[in-house]
């Protein structure tokens, strides 16, 4: 998913699953004035390692330093920039919308168009689950905004390289 905003970056960091590793990684960004926009951390294959997918914003000039400083951390195995490659980028969102019986069928139609699942339904509200690239979730958010959005949670991006390449 080529990125258009040149200040937005997506990094994948493969780390030993040890206490403090997230703090160390986060510190590298904070010290250089980068803002972490989203962060997904989960155990990798055997639980010994973890994968972090970090979306961050900051001056692209400084990104090289960030990648090197992160890579240099003892508990980091590697740090890869996926901003400009063709990796698979996915995100999930849960959106709670205020709809009663009157608007429901229209809302469901929009949701269906975006491939959403309805995961909760009450007389006054519904929760839909959407999975896709971040732009798709943005678009859905816009479309559904004609109803009142009660709350919204997004997981942040996860990234995986295509084909034989590893992330």
């Amino acid at each position: 998913m080529p990125n258009t905003d040149k200040n937005m970056h997506t990094l994948s960091v493969y780390v030993s699953n040890k206490p403090g590793v997230l703090a160390r990684v986060a510190q590298v960004f904070a010290r250089r004035g980068f803002n972490i926009e989203s962060l997904v951390v989960s155990p990798a294959i055997d639980g010994h390692f973890s994968r972090m997918t970090i979306s961050c914003s900051g001056d692209p000039e400084g990104l090289d330093q960030i990648i090197k400083q992160v890579s240099k951390l003892i508990d980091v195995l590697h740090c890869v920039d996926h901003t400009f490659d063709e990796s698979v980028v996915k995100e999930m969102g849960l959106i709670k919308i205020a709809v009663d019986s009157e608007g429901r069928s229209d809302a469901l139609q929009i949701a269906e168009h975006f491939g959403c699942k309805t995961v909760d339904l009450t007389p006054e509200s519904m929760i839909v689950q959407i999975v896709g690239d971040p732009a798709k979730i943005d678009a859905f958010e816009q479309m559904i905004a004609k109803y009142r959005i009660i709350e919204l949670v997004r997981t942040g991006k996860v990234v995986m390289s295509r084909g034989q390449e590893t992330t």
Partner: peptide, 14 residues
């Protein structure tokens, strides 16, 4: 001290 020293050590342990 593990947290306080984090930016000024090569590595640290608790």
């Amino acid at each position: 001290i593990f947290g306080i020293t984090m930016p000024v050590v090569k590595h640290s342990y608790l």
